[in-house]
Every structure is written in C-alpha cells, then in structure tokens.
Design a protein around this nucleic acid. Structure first.
Length: 466
DNA sequence: GTTAGGG
DNA sequence: CCCTAAC
C-alpha cells in the first residue's frame, strides 16, 4: 500500500468507520473493546475504545503503535499487537494471572510485564509462534477472519477471568469454535445472554468454571469423589464363553457326521484358535489383505501399518489353513472386535499441553469437546485417548508429588518426557476439579467471572469439601 | 453417542 | 490402547 492509498484508507475509516461492537458479542460495562486496535491513529484509537469504567491502564494508546507500511486491511488485533505494540506498553491490572503460564513456558516474568488483562486484549497471543502446542498460528501474518477474532476475544473474555490462575491460556485457533458450541444443548441454559449472541456460545465451564453445576452434574465428578460404576461380567467374557461352548457343540456335531480324516485337521486348527479367540481371522480377509502385505491392519488406515507383529502374521497364515470352516460367530467376532491394534503413538509435549488446555477450558470429562476443538486435526487421537492420557497424566503427577521434586526432576528429566511444569499443571487442574465437585451450583465462579482472578489456593479455601 | 474404568 | 458397562 503506498502512501496515497494509505491516507485514503485512513480517511475512509472515518470516525464512525469502526464499529466498537464489531468484535465483541456484546460489550460489557467493564469491558474494553478491542476494536480500536484496528485503528492506529491515536485519536481514532481513543474514540474506538471505550475507556469509561475501564479499570485498565491503556498504556498502549499513549505510545508507539507504529503501523507504517503495514496493510491494515488485512490485519486485526492479533496480527497487530505482538509485532507493533511494545510489550511494555500494554499494562495489566492483574498481571498475576500470567504467572503460571509464564512459568509453564519458561519465560522470564520480566519479559512479559505488559499485557492487557484477559478482559480485553490478550497479548499473550503473541506467544503463539513460540508455543508449540498452539502451533496453528505459526505465522503472525496469517489473516484471521473476524469470526476467529471474535473467538479469540471471547476466549480471552471468558477463559481469562476464571478463578483459577493458570486457567487463562492461549487457545488454539478454534476452527469450528462457534459451530461446535452451538451443538451444546446445555450451554444455552447456563450462559448469560451476552455469551449466546451471534451463535457464539461458550462451554459451561467458561461461565461457571470448574465448579459449575453442569460440570458436576454432567460427569458426576472426578478424582477421589468420583464413585466408580459397578461392573458386571463383561459381555466379551460372556460372548467368548458362549462361542467356546457353541463351537464345542458344533465340533461334536461335525465329528459325529462328517468325514473324520478331513475334520481332524480342522479340529486341530480350531482348537488352537479357541485358545486365542481374539486372533482368529476369517479366511476371506486373508485374500483381501494379501495385496498390501500387512494383513492385520487392513481395516485400519495408514497409522497402524507398523503394528503387525510376526506372531500375528504367523497366526494369520495358520488360519488360512483352516480355510472356510470357520463358523459365522467367529467371523463376526473378528469383524467387529478386530485384531488390529492401533499403532502406539507417543504423546508429544505439545499434545499434552493442548490436552491440558482443553481440560482447563472445557473441564475434565469433556473429551469430545476437547477432541473436536483442539484435536480436530489429529485423527489418531480419539476422545478416549484423551481421557486415557489425562488419567495417565494424573498418575504421573502423583508420582511426581510422591518424590522429592527437585532431585526427581533432575534425575528423571532424561527419560521422562513430560516437563515438571506440565505435571504441576496437571496437579493444579486436578485439585481444582476435585475441590469443585461438592459445589452445588456454580454461582461463585459465574459471579467472579469478571472479577479478579483467584488463585487455586483461594478456590480451595472457598470450596472446602466436607 | 459419550464417558469411566478395568484390563 | 482396547473393551465394555453405564450413562
């Protein structure tokens, strides 16, 4: 954009050009509209940002926003801030909320003295390029649609004002943020009107936090308070025993009527298969699989191709000798339960961080939400995987708690892939969710939504379980 | 369809 | 990671 174009663009902006509400779903009295960031002339910024009742030091307005030569038509708040606004220029009134995060990612506190509090702009988004787990925004020059910008703002507005100090974290870009939330039946009821406008609804936890009614009611609790479901003998156990007995009776029937020379071989193979019914495979699958040489993963796409073991292939070959004699029950069993095991994929630290963010923002047990919103790109992580990983993280964090932290950390860093900060975050999250269980109705969090951020300790003291 | 928990 | 009861 050359100078002339730039000037004409400025003029075309005009005083009324920027709708203050364009980025906020509904401006709250004490909320700072961030639309002003779209302007970069100081007087316009002042006009664009409501400063009445805003308890923030909008230091950014007084200082260097230098956008020269930048095509602002393609910029938005997220693009502009990290680059063009000096970190120290955006001051916050409750910068303590950042501490955990900064610790987590290993930055000096001093390096991030300035950022607007979570009610307004969140300069912490500038950490996107550095934070592996939020790596979608690798390029800050990426254009972000207005909707996405809204999502960011919303997430900052809501998530950032929780009562849990490590809660406000930068979010991944929510590709389908709004759509996904619309699907949530419960959120409409639990959300105040200003969060359900424009179809942008937020998860219940955004509003009431981990102590919310929905949190408690929906998953019935976590941690020690969770009471376990009672289990009957598994269906698989019943099925297998019934299959065994059925096959035995069939075999007896065949043995009494069929050709004995032929059946003896079949019986031998069958008895082998009965020992390990899970590994039994119908013969037609074999011809099916021959072409790709990895018979055991034929039903599972790509990612499991490494998972076939020689033992299994051998077993498969064995089955081929048994030919078409397999009974239909066994075929169905093989088809449905399958012998393929998903290839093990180690969880990366960034994945774990994403998971923690998901738990932070949506709550323990909202695995499908987390999956849809944060792991939509990783097909190999199912909601169950997330749940399992969370369970393992809890175990790991307790293991860490049990030992002396410093020594253990130093000693185990070589083999333990998870940084201590992550395990600490797990513990914090866990404690929050444990302590939030006895809460009847999430009034406390919703009340304090736009108040200052409480520390986990304060949550605990507020919500002492019996 | 989703989640918890045992394996 | 799988499986399945419980929800």
């Amino acid at each position: 954009m050359n100078q002339v174009e730039e000037e004409s663009f400025y003029h075309s902006l005009g005083e009324e050009a920027i709708d203050v509400d364009c980025l906020l779903v509904e401006p709250l009295p004490d909320q700072v509209s961030v639309s002003g960031v779209w302007c970069y002339e100081e007087d316009k910024i002042r006009k664009c940002i409501k400063t009445e009742n805003a308890p923030y030091n909008l230091g950014a307005l007084d200082s260097n926003i230098n956008m020269e030569g930048v095509d602002t038509r393609n910029l938005n708040a997220l693009d502009v801030l990290p680059h063009e606004v000096g970190m120290g220029n955006l001051l916050t009134t409750n910068s303590s909320s950042c501490d955990d995060y900064l610790l987590d990612i290993g930055f000096d506190h001093g390096a991030f003295i300035g950022y607007v509090s979570s009610e307004g702009l969140n300069v912490r988004n500038s950490q996107f390029p550095m934070e592996g787990s939020f790596g979608i925004h690798n390029s800050m020059t990426e254009n972000i649609s207005e909707v996405e910008c809204q999502n960011y703002l919303l997430s900052n507005c809501i998530f950032g004002t929780s009562t849990y100090s490590s809660r406000p974290k930068s979010l991944d870009r929510f590709d389908d943020f709004s759509n996904s939330f619309i699907d949530q039946e419960n959120s409409q009821d639990t959300l105040p009107p200003h969060f359900s406008q424009n179809g942008l609804e937020l998860a219940p936890i955004c509003q009431d936090g981990p102590t919310s009614t929905s949190s408690v009611e929906d998953h019935g609790g976590v941690g020690e308070i969770t009471h376990k479901r009672s289990r009957k003998p598994t269906k698989r156990y019943i099925d297998e025993s019934s299959i065994l007995s059925l096959k035995n009776s069939k075999r007896r029937r065949e043995a009494s009527s069929g050709s004995k020379a032929k059946l003896s071989g079949v019986q031998r193979v069958k008895s082998q298969n009965e020992i390990k019914p899970k590994e039994k495979t119908p013969s037609y699958e074999i011809s099916f699989d021959k072409a790709i040489q990895v018979p055991f993963i034929s039903h599972v796409p790509t990612e499991c191709q490494k998972s076939n073991s020689p033992a299994k292939i051998e077993n498969r070959v064995e089955n081929s000798s048994s030919g078409l004699e397999d009974d239909s029950e066994t075929i169905m069993r093989s088809m449905t339960s399958g012998n393929q095991r998903k290839h093990h994929r180690a969880w990366t630290v960034s994945e774990v961080k994403k998971l923690l963010d998901g738990v932070t923002h949506f709550g323990v047990g909202k695995w499908t939400h987390i999956k849809k919103l944060l792991f939509s790109s990783s097909v190999h992580r199912t909601p169950v995987d997330l749940k399992d990983k969370w369970r393992n993280l809890l175990k790991a964090s307790h293991a860490l708690k049990g030992s002396r932290i410093e020594d253990d950390q130093k000693r185990s860093q070589s083999w333990r892939p998870l940084p201590k900060s992550i395990l600490c975050r797990v513990r914090e999250l866990e404690s929050v969710y444990i302590y939030s269980q006895p809460q009847e109705s999430g009034s406390k969090i919703s009340k304090s939504k736009f108040q200052n951020i409480s520390s986990p300790a304060r949550i605990k003291s507020n919500k002492v379980p019996v």
